[in-house]
Each structure stands twice: as C-alpha cells, then as structure tokens.
Simulated scan of single mutants.
Amino acid sequence: MKQSRESSTKLDYSIILIVMCLCLIGIAAIYIASLTNNQYAIDFLIRQLVWLVVGTIIIIIIVKYFDYDRLQQTAYYLYSFGLFLLLLVFAPVIGIERKGAQSWVGTEAINIQPSELMKSFLIVALAKLIWDHTKKTQTRTIKTDFHLFVKISLMTLVPIALIMLQSDLGTSLVLISIMVGMMFISGITWRLLLPVFGGIAAIGTTLIILVIKSPATLTALGFEKYQFNRITSWLEPEQDPLGAGMQLLKSIRAIGSGEIHGSGIGYEAIEIPENHNDFIFTIIGGDFGFVGACVLIVLYFLLVYQIIRVALDIGIPFYSYICTGVVAMIFFHVLQNVGMTIGMLPITGIPLLFISYGGSAMLGSLMAIGLVLSARYNAPKAMDL
C-alpha cells in the first residue's frame, strides 16, 4: 500500500505528454491557417502561445494548491464565481459582443469567455454535490435518486440558461454532456435515467423529422424558420451552396482533398472561414490527410483512457466524479467538432480542445486537465482522511 501511495504522488506524465502533443499540433495548425487564410490581421499564433503559458501556470496552481480538501471547500464558491462571470458579460462596459453573441468580458485587446471556464467550475461543483448526497444517503431508492437527479439538473440548468441568453448553443450542449456523464457515474438507477433520456431523444428525433418532412408544422407550433435552418443546412447543404450550406460544403471538400497522406503544409486549395478556430480540423485533414486525422483522434482516445485510469487507480469517489466530467467534456468536444466538419453532425460553435485558437478555450481545457493531475498528485492526502 505504501508503494502504491508513493507512486500516486507523482505527476501523471502520460497525460502531460499527450496534452503537450495536442497543443503542439494546435500551434502548428494555427500557423498553417495563418498561411492560408488572410481573414484576420491578428497574430493568432503569438496569442495562443501566451494563453498556453498562462494555462500551464494555472495547472501548476491547481495541482499544488487545490488538493482534496481545498476543492471540497471551494467547489460551490467556484461555481458561484462562474455564474457571476456569466452575468458580467451583460454589463454595459465590460461585456463584449462578437458576431451576435454577448459572451466575452474585458477589453478588445484582452478578454475571456466565462462559459469556457464554467465547464470546469461545474464539474467540481457537481462532483461535490454528488459526493455530499452519496454520504448522506444510506439506502438508495428511486426517491433519493430522483432528488439527486433534480439537484444535478438544476445546478446545470442555471448556467445553461445564462449561456443561452448569450446565444451560445455549443457550450450549452457541452454542459449538458457533462451533466449526463456525471449522472451516469453518480449511481442514479437506470429505471429513472432510461425513460428520461429516452424521452428527450425521442423528442429531438421527432423535431428533426419535422424539420425535414413538415417544417410548416413547426412554424404552426411557434418556431421561427431561422431556428431550424441549422438543421436543414446540415442535412441538405446543397440546397444553399452559397449561403447556409457553404461552410459545410467547403469543409468537406477541404478534408477530402487531403486524401490519405495530405496535401502538404500550407496547401491553399480551399479557403475555409474560421479555419484557425472551430474548423481547424480542416487543416489537419487537408494538409495531413487521413493519416494525420487518425493520429489526432488516437491522441484524444489515449487522453481519455489515461484519465479513466486515474479515476480507477486512485479509487476516490469525489475525484472519480471529476474525472468523469472531464472525460465527458473532452469526448463531446471532439465528437461534435470533428462530426460537424465532416457533415455527420450539425454545425455548432464548439472548438477542438487544445487545437483550435482561443484563449478562453485553452484556459478552460487546461483547467480541466489540472483537476485530473491534481487528483493523481493529491490522492494520498485524501486516502489518509
């Protein structure tokens, strides 16, 4: 047991190495995007490097100073701080609007997107909520599981409501994925979860079918046409190749042009708007081909695998909940971002973690990794409690 505890005090260098590889790929992809896209005059590469340094410092702070006790003590304070930041985006002077979304605070030169930070804050708060409920509940019943289900849902829906006011559907979906993942690991019975999520899936499927077969029905129910244009432009982009469907069609062509081995660095056959950000996977697929895309996907799978190993190795429920939330966040980000660029899923504003340009996204994702590294590093202290 002593040897096991000593080994668990070490940093998880496998996770650090994988994240470093992903960040290096991201830096290379952003540099390539700057060669092929003159959409903006800002030097994204330098800014991304700065945010990467800041994120690394945050990881060190989390690992060294936010151990088991500190995370337990500050979980709800961090959650409240995240809600405060989400409200701050609506402030007249501090809040910043971009492309129709009121989602940033700060100045035009230096700003952050609070919703990206809220992901990690929510993970810690839900882990605390689930752990407190589990300690107090001696016997699990449908009633106690329902109470936990409601508490988890309410804690998640509050930030989602604020984020939806910012017209940010993508981040709202990420928070929902975190909630669902942590509900599954919380021990809530399948007799409760299956009908709830089955019903939600049935409603979603029905709405998609109505968008395709009978949009007039949705209009009669009070939906506006622009609200389901995102679905039609996903399923039938050829109907509007110069408008709503243009981004998806260009993305598919750019990725397909890479074929097996890629077209080479800086290949400029197809220009994609936002190819430094949400559509950076088109750089990977176009310049490095199927092989490069597969390498990237494998790295993400290895990262998820290593985080799951941390949860299983240390065997501490509170940390396991945190690891589950981080896995759900990473999995949904990768699935949605890659899926939307190849036409498998609707387009939403979700970046590719560690790869896409964006200071807030980088900080948020590195904060989540910091929580996992802290779990591994500080597990022995928690074992002694």
Rank of each mutant, 00 (worst) to 15 (best):
L210R: 05
D69T: 10
F228L: 00
V196D: 06
Y31E: 01
I94R: 00
P351G: 06
M344G: 12
P195A: 06
L154M: 13
I314W: 02
D278V: 13
Y77R: 09
I94C: 02
K250A: 12
D43E: 14
I94W: 01
L24C: 13
A28F: 14
G258L: 01
R5I: 14
K2R: 14
V295S: 02
L210D: 10
T341L: 15
L312F: 04
I308Q: 02
Y357V: 11
S172Q: 10
D43N: 15
D240Y: 00
L129D: 08
L117C: 02
M329D: 09
A29L: 05
L296F: 08
K10D: 11
I32C: 07
Q227E: 04
V19Q: 08
G199A: 09
A28H: 07
T324W: 14
L373T: 11
I208H: 00
K250I: 12
P237N: 06
R70D: 09
I322D: 08
P346Y: 02
I203N: 00
E97P: 02
L154K: 05
M329T: 10
I355N: 01
S320P: 07
I203G: 01
A41E: 15
A368C: 13
G285V: 06
R140K: 15
K213N: 15
K135E: 12
K2W: 15
S80W: 03
Y31P: 04
K119P: 04
Y226P: 01
L22K: 00
I252F: 13
Q166V: 07
F90P: 02
L363A: 08
M183Q: 14
S80K: 05
L24K: 02
R253P: 08
G364R: 03
L154S: 07
S360L: 02
I280N: 06
I252L: 12
I30L: 04
D67H: 07
V295R: 04
Y68E: 10
R253N: 14
S172D: 10
P237R: 00
L312P: 00
V158A: 09
H261Q: 12
L117E: 01
I176L: 15
I94G: 01
M329C: 09
T232E: 11
G204H: 05
A244W: 06
Q239R: 05
A254V: 12
G262V: 10
L148G: 09
L335C: 11
F44Q: 10
I307P: 03
F44K: 08
L154H: 04
L173E: 07
L207M: 04
G359E: 07
I188W: 14
K119W: 01
I231C: 02
F90A: 12
F121S: 03
I60Q: 11
Y321D: 06
H147Q: 14
L52K: 01
S4P: 12
Q166P: 04
A244Q: 07
K10P: 09
G187F: 15
L83P: 08
D69C: 02
P346V: 03
R309C: 02
H147E: 15
V196C: 07
Y226R: 00
